[in-house]
Design a protein around this nucleic acid. Structure first.
Lengths: 120, 120
DNA sequence: ACAAGTACTTACCCCAAAGTATGTATCATG
DNA sequence: CATGATACATACTTTGGGGTAAGTACTTGT
């Protein structure tokens, strides 16, 4: 699981930043190139693993699962597996994940606005 | 600076993600451990370089300037230098930077809420 | 003469995030 | 009997973000 060197200034700073700064706390949860995109695709309804893969062709399987796992640990997405073969796994937003919607919307709004004017 | 290898899948993905996903676009601008904190300190009014340093003692000078530069390039903060000696430099938010306020607030709100309930 | 304050710059190193590539188990279908 | 689909796992390498430490140019205070 990408074992993190517990004794690194790097990680220590990350921790205290997350505790003292709620914005950084959010950043640690939805940061990274792929998480917002995954969250977006799940915001339109639950999806199977393979559906997500096809919806985001640029992402590698490793990255997809890795981030899905982290999002699960962070209690933002829910994994539901049907014990059948071939496997049938669906991912959906948890309530906490759904509550992120206004945040993502606010960000998207600002982003689009900023891209439009480029510089004010 | 930190010269970026232009031909890396890594950076390429970052670029296209930022173009196609406005949320990622925002993330690239205010991501990193220090940027939100710097932005927060500037949101309460313009500050001198040394004031910022004292306000955020954990940050190193290298990181401070590096991020201030990036924030300038991203048109979020404005640098004003009085041509005197000793140097007198103040940093303040640009209109675009100020417009970020509601976004940061939304994030902070969610963050605090999420920290409070931990898991729903 | 020397320390301290101003606002940086520069060289060097480490590490975690991201990418590449391949493997696994099970079943259905041609 | 081999290919494809499902949902992953895992070993290996690269690279960009971040940290450490030291230096620069100029002036004021002691």
């Amino acid at each position: 699981m990408t074992a993190i060197k517990e004794s690194s200034t790097r990680n220590f700073n990350k921790q205290i930043s997350a505790i003292s700064c709620p914005v950084t706390y959010v950043m640690n949860k939805i940061g990274g190139h792929w998480k917002p995109i995954i969250l977006y695709h799940l915001s339109t309804g639950q999806k199977r693993y393979s559906e997500l893969r096809r919806a985001i062709p640029e992402i590698t399987e490793k990255m997809l699962i890795q981030h899905l796992k982290q999002l699960q640990e962070d209690n933002l997405v829910l994994r539901t597996a049907e014990p059948v073969v071939p496997p049938f796994v669906t991912y959906s937003l948890t309530p906490a994940g759904a509550r992120l919607q206004p945040v993502l919307d606010a960000m998207a709004l600002w982003g689009l606005d900023d891209m439009a004017k480029g510089n004010n």
